[in-house]
Design a protein around this nucleic acid. Structure first.
Length: 572
DNA sequence: CGACAGACTTAGAACACAATAT
DNA sequence: ATATTGTGTTCTAAGTCTGTCG
């Protein structure tokens, strides 16, 4: 049901995607591309470009506090018998215990991975005893953390204030750095605390132990002549380096995927802000190229080369549907998700005719964060024909675009416009959609509230285009249920009123007097009123439902060129 | 080229806190 | 005053994309 609604909204949007923008201007003069041939200067500029700072000074990361053993009254039980755990084993047990009310702990993979890693932390003796997770009882541990959270919530105003001040002190000490003479806020100045890995979707590694980060894991990046951050007493940094071509202040390798985690600046910092500005400039530049690029990929649908055809169809999807590029993923390392280039035959269904349209493509796959993308969309005939061709003689698990990689696609895009990559289309189409929608929805004479509603609706249109969804919380389910109960009650009232109306009508027919006539009228009005109320309630429910699964934050934060919003504010 | 590491952006969940309804 | 709902912030996972190396 929700999918159907999303679909309806998306269908309206897809049309918007077709709206032609501003007449194509010629290539931007003086763009880097044109300088490329002039060799040395460009090379120099490029190198210059890579330098991110001249001075960088900071305090290093703030480490997660050491493990605090459980108080004596809190015990772990194995097979019904209390058992005192070694500190290491106990710490990992608390990671699991505090998650007891989370869905994760019901998942077989999570449990298996946790138990496996937990056993590695146990002493030989513990390992000898603890052989089955089913016999483990963490309920006391769980209760301890629940109580602790409740106690924290119940603190007095003063105590809360004190905690807040302490956090602020920490922020002041570790949360800022000096970059080229300016004090800049750091985004994440704390190392990630140890815990159980919470992968999204069907992640094969969920439940694995995420190791505690120690200074010996951490590489510090700062300028050579700055005050080098002090490692915590008794510890050393893994390395101190001075690389001014990168933005990070500290880094360590995480123990689940062996990938690198970074301490970086806050988005409001100059460096991050400039990058965001550049991103929107690139998207804006695409405006002048997009018509030509579109006619180019349309022409390529008929190319002799399979590779070119696949690229052209993929690009059409990326442009029209705002799909992500879709890099290859190592399987077994993460959840099975795809993007455009990694779509498989099983994700696509072709309908010669559906919903009154010809050449309908049905896409159904899990994208980033295992969010489902479901869309039925009419496509141009050559696209449809090409898809038939790409799917011919392939198994469901085979790649749809077997001759295409994100690298080759981006290489092609780079040739069409300097700085163009697949994700630029998402930024471009998101921003242009906001602009178009704002224009279509806002009226100068509207109230402020109505204008804000228009803005939010435009924002929602973008979120739907980009498939930004959120899980409906349990609180939402409850409030939805309340609403449904109300609707049900109203329905019964309507049925009752209808029955009474029928009775009154029969009465009036039999008696034919004025009194029975006025009763009849009254009943009629009552029914009408109740029906109206019912209709309003179901509209509310629909609205709530639609809103609840759309997440506006991500597009607001990453995709909408702020200049569009600012211009709109000034205008209205 | 293709695999891989590295760096950076984008993402939803969880949490904290404020606004509003009851 | 308290419960409920909405909103902003924090956290960190999961993407994109580039550069390097064999």
């Amino acid at each position: 049901m929700p999918v159907v609604r999303l679909l309806r909204l998306r269908a309206a949007l897809t049309l918007l995607g077709e709206v032609p923008r501003r007449p194509a201007s010629r290539g931007v003069p003086g763009s880097r591309r044109t300088q490329k041939s002039s060799g040395a200067r460009w090379e120099e500029e490029k190198r210059e470009d890579r330098v991110k700072w001249r001075q960088l000074e900071h305090k290093g990361p703030y480490f997660a506090p050491p493990y605090e053993p459980l108080p004596d009254g809190v015990c772990f039980f194995y097979d019904g018998k209390p058992m005192r755990l070694s500190m290491k084993a106990e710490e990992v047990a608390t990671f699991y215990g505090r998650m007891l009310d989370h869905e994760y702990t019901t998942k077989e993979v999570f449990r298996k991975n946790f138990f496996n890693d937990w056993r590695k932390e146990m002493t030989v003796e513990e390992r000898e005893v603890i052989k089955s997770l089913d016999k483990c009882d963490f309920t006391e541990i769980h209760r301890y953390f629940v109580d602790k959270a409740a106690a924290r919530k119940a603190l007095t105003r003063e105590e809360k204030q004190k905690l807040k001040e302490e956090a602020e002190k920490l922020q002041q000490e570790f949360g800022y750095c000096i970059l080229d003479g300016h004090r800049e806020k750091i985004g994440n100045f704390k190392t990630e605390p140890p815990g159980l890995f919470r992968g999204r979707g069907d992640h094969p590694k969920m439940g694995m132990l995420k190791r505690r980060v120690v200074p010996e894991d951490v590489v510090i990046n700062c300028s050579r002549d700055s005050k080098i951050p002090e490692p915590p007493v008794g510890h050393q940094w893994k390395e101190v380096r001075s690389d001014n071509t990168v933005m990070w202040l500290a880094a360590w390798t995480e123990s689940i995927q062996n990938s690198i985690k970074y301490i970086m600046l806050n988005p409001c910092s100059k460096l991050k802000g400039e990058k965001a500005w550049q991103k929107f400039e690139t998207a804006r530049r695409l405006r002048g190229f997009v018509d030509e690029i579109r006619s180019q990929y349309r022409a390529d649908w008929k190319s002799q080369e399979m590779k070119t055809r696949q690229r052209a169809v993929a690009l059409y999807f990326i442009d029209k549907l705002a799909l992500r590029a879709g890099n290859e993923k190592e399987d077994g390392e993460a959840a099975d998700t795809v993007g455009c280039c990694s779509l498989r035959v099983e994700h696509v269904q072709l309908h010669p005719e559906a919903d009154g349209c010809q050449h309908v493509v049905e896409l159904d796959f899990l994208g980033k964060d295992s969010v489902r993308y479901y869309n039925r969309v009419p496509v141009e005939k050559p696209v449809y024909k090409n898809l038939q061709l790409f799917m011919k003689n392939k198994a469901p698990r085979d790649d749809l675009f077997d001759r295409l990689t994100t690298t080759s696609l981006n290489k092609h895009l780079q040739e069409l416009m300097d700085g163009l990559t697949a994700k630029v289309f998402r930024t471009y189409n998101a921003s242009i959609t906001l602009q178009e929608q704002l224009r279509a929805l806002t009226r100068a004479e509207d109230s402020i509230a109505a204008k804000i509603l228009s803005y939010n609706r435009a924002n929602r249109a973008v979120a739907i285009l980009c498939n930004h969804q959120r899980a409906t919380s349990s609180a939402f389910e409850k409030s939805m249920q309340n609403l449904q109960t109300k609707i049900q009650a109203k329905k019964e009232q309507v049925a009752e009123a209808r029955a009474e109306l029928r009775k009154a009508r029969a009465e009036h027919k039999a008696q034919g007097d004025g009194k029975s006539r006025s009763v009849l009228e009254k009943k009629r009005r009552l029914l009408e009123k109740l029906q109206e109320q019912l209709a309003w309630l179901s509209v509310q429910a629909t609205d709530k439902e639609e809103n609840k699964q759309v997440a506006l934050g991500t597009s607001k934060l990453n995709y909408l060129d702020p200049r569009i919003s600012i211009a709109w504010c000034f205008r209205y």
